[in-house]
Design a protein around this nucleic acid. Structure first.
Length: 566
RNA sequence: GUCCCCGUAGUUCAGUGGAUAGAACGGGAGUUUCCUAAACUCUAAACACAUGUUCGACUCAUGUCGGGGACACCA
């Protein structure tokens, strides 16, 4: 419930700390006040309480409440459209929806933390989308956000990829296809996937070769180091382009190789403090069975580090480098258990900072799980190009008079909108099934539907020929469609708060759709520019402009841009 | 074997103890001399099962069945 509206209603009713809901049918009222809690204090049954309250209550004249009625255990309020419209709409400016919950607080967020030499698929895109929205929602709530990327450029995956380049003929890829490729980052990912699969099929046959490469790499052997440096450049340059395209602005990048050594020191300290112990075969472990978290491996029996070795140091580094109150990181839900272990080990180590892990569900295909082994991984770039191609054709067909440049620019904005919206339709932690046909159908709960609504409003603003003045006659707002729209607009600030509290971007996507739908209902029943008189034209245009402002702002939280025409 | 997540219309999802469980796609029937038909209107269709807690359960608890994931040298 909108705070201003809530305060006003409580003032009129003479009650405090009320929880409101919405009646199931419009003819039953606009806002409902359930009386279950209220009646407890007076030891009455809720229906009786509601009936008595309404009988005894005398509604003051000239307020936003037009009528008060009891419906069983509910007190339902009927609002005056003109008065509510004025109250809500006059508050709407660029800051509407912002709050200052996080004023003066800094928060670090780590995403998408992809590894070099690997492919960037639509699961990684989901990671970026979820992260982007959390950044925007936190910023709207007054937080100072520091987006950070953590990149592993030195693991076994790099070794496999380099081996793959040297042995690409084994799986039918010519050297020239790699070195002359236009998108080298993408090719590198494909080589990694192919090599990785090939190595799985040839079980330990090549382990010694891989070990040899790893040894050469770790000891700076000239030829392999040169190949490593060059390919790393391809990968990081390609990822940088992708991050720019997806509007991720990292304040810093930490490489795994930078924190590895400190991680080993922490393991030594864990041993000294008797938090860690030597386990089977000489590996170093932390026994977390007491906490129902099994056993965490912090160092291999060979003395080498594992993921957690570096993550321990990374966690420390994040708070050392920046004065933040919270550190958020985003990975697939597969790693939920791992992060519980990590956080517990840090806690035992005496680390008392707020660490939040957000797991997002896998992006599955109708045919099942994506796996490079089955060869059905959808790369981000391939999906993007396919959607773009489709949208260019659609846009061209709808606007034969547009220049090629305008068609391409519009299609590009729409493409990014479609991809980002599709990834955020569902709650982050839920597994989603990604259906390509559905993603490019663009009907219903989709980005084009919302952008189309914004474009229509923009069009109204362009076509308005009258004089604009600031006086809006709110008393002209009498229709139910207007009331629905105003009440929907009023919800926006609480939607932002809900997204913040639950780390959930899907509520914003849902809200954009609901608001657009409510507007389309109004638009189809009431003419704006052809209304009966100029005063009404101005009033409806004013309302439309407010809707477009909020849609643009809400889409902005999802890092989605709008188009003026489509 | 242990732990975690999930089972809601044909399909993909909403619904954080309250009124008659909502959308979208797909199915069926319609709407364009009028502000962009990438729109709108109408229609059929669902809480895996069982027990319990509660005035009240899709929501909480326990169990069964079904799906996914994680559990020591992979990241």
């Amino acid at each position: 419930m909108n705070k201003k509206l809530q305060t006003k209603i409580q003032e009129i009713l003479g009650l405090e700390n009320l929880m409101f809901s919405t009646p199931p049918k419009p003819e039953m009222g606009d806002i409902a006040l359930p009386c279950f809690e209220l009646s407890k204090e007076k030891k009455q049954n809720p229906a009786e309480f509601a009936k008595n309250f309404v009988e005894e209550f005398s509604l003051p004249a000239d307020t936003i409440i037009k009528e008060v009625k009891a419906f069983g255990p509910y007190i339902n309020l009927f609002l005056d459209t003109a008065k509510v419209s004025e109250m809500i709409l006059e508050d709407i400016n660029e800051d509407f929806g912002n709050n200052n919950i996080g004023q003066g607080k800094k928060v670090l967020i780590e995403y998408p933390s992809q590894n070099t030499h690997k492919e960037f698929h639509i699961g990684h895109m989901r990671n970026v989308c979820v992260g982007n929205t959390i950044v925007q929602v936190y910023r709207a709530s007054g937080y100072d956000m520091i987006p950070m990327n953590y990149v592993n450029d030195f693991g076994r995956h790099v070794v496999k990829c380099l081996w793959g380049i040297q042995n690409s003929f084994k799986f039918g890829v010519q050297s020239s296809e790699i070195f002359d490729a236009s998108n080298k980052q993408k090719v590198l990912g494909e080589i990694y996937a192919k090599a990785s699969n090939y190595l799985k099929d040839h079980d330990k046959e090549y382990n010694e070769e891989l070990d040899a490469i790893q040894y050469k790499l770790e000891n700076g052997e000239e030829e392999i180091t040169k190949l490593f440096e060059e390919t790393k450049k391809w990968s990081t340059a390609g990822f940088l382009d992708l991050m720019n395209e997806l509007k991720v602005e990292h304040d810093s990048i930490i490489y795994e190789s930078e924190v590895k050594a400190r991680g080993q020191e922490i393991v030594d300290e864990l041993l000294n403090k008797k938090i860690a112990e030597v386990g089977e075969g000489g590996a170093i472990i932390v026994d977390l069975n007491k906490y129902n978290l099994d056993v965490a491996l912090v160092r291999k029996s060979t003395g080498g580090g594992v993921y957690m070795t570096s993550d321990l140091a990374l966690s420390e580094e994040k708070f050392k480098k920046y004065d933040v109150v919270e550190s958020i990181n985003i990975t697939a839900t597969e790693q939920n258990f791992y992060f519980k272990q990590l956080f517990k080990v840090l806690e035992l180590f005496g680390f008392d900072k707020k660490m939040t892990h957000i797991g997002y569900g896998l992006v599955n295909l109708p045919s099942g799980k994506m796996s490079s082994r089955a060869g059905n991984v959808i790369l981000y770039e391939d999906l993007r190009d396919k959607v773009l191609d489709h949208l260019e054709k659609e846009t061209r067909a709808r606007h034969e008079d547009w220049s090629e440049k305008k068609v391409k620019e519009t299609a590009h904005v729409l493409t990014m909108a479609v991809l980002k919206f599709t990834m955020q339709k569902h709650e982050a932690e839920k597994v989603v099934t990604f259906d390509f046909d559905e993603a490019v159908s663009f009907d219903g709960f989709s980005a084009p539907y919302i952008l189309y609504t914004v474009a229509r409003i923009n069009s109204l603003e362009r076509k308005f020929t009258g004089k604009s003045n600031d006086e809006v006659n709110f008393s002209l707002f009498i229709e139910d469609e207007v009331k629905n729209l105003v009440l929907k607009i009023a919800e926006f600030p609480e939607i932002v708060e809900k997204a913040l509290q639950n780390y959930n971007s899907s509520v914003i996507a849902k809200y954009c759709f609901d608001l657009a739908k409510t507007y389309n209902d109004f638009y189809n029943k009431h003419s704006v520019l052809n209304a009966e008189n100029e005063e009404l034209v101005k009033a409806r245009l004013y309302l439309s402009t407010k809707v477009s402002q909020i849609l643009t702002k809400a889409l902005g939280l999802l890092t989605i841009d709008t188009v003026s025409e489509m």
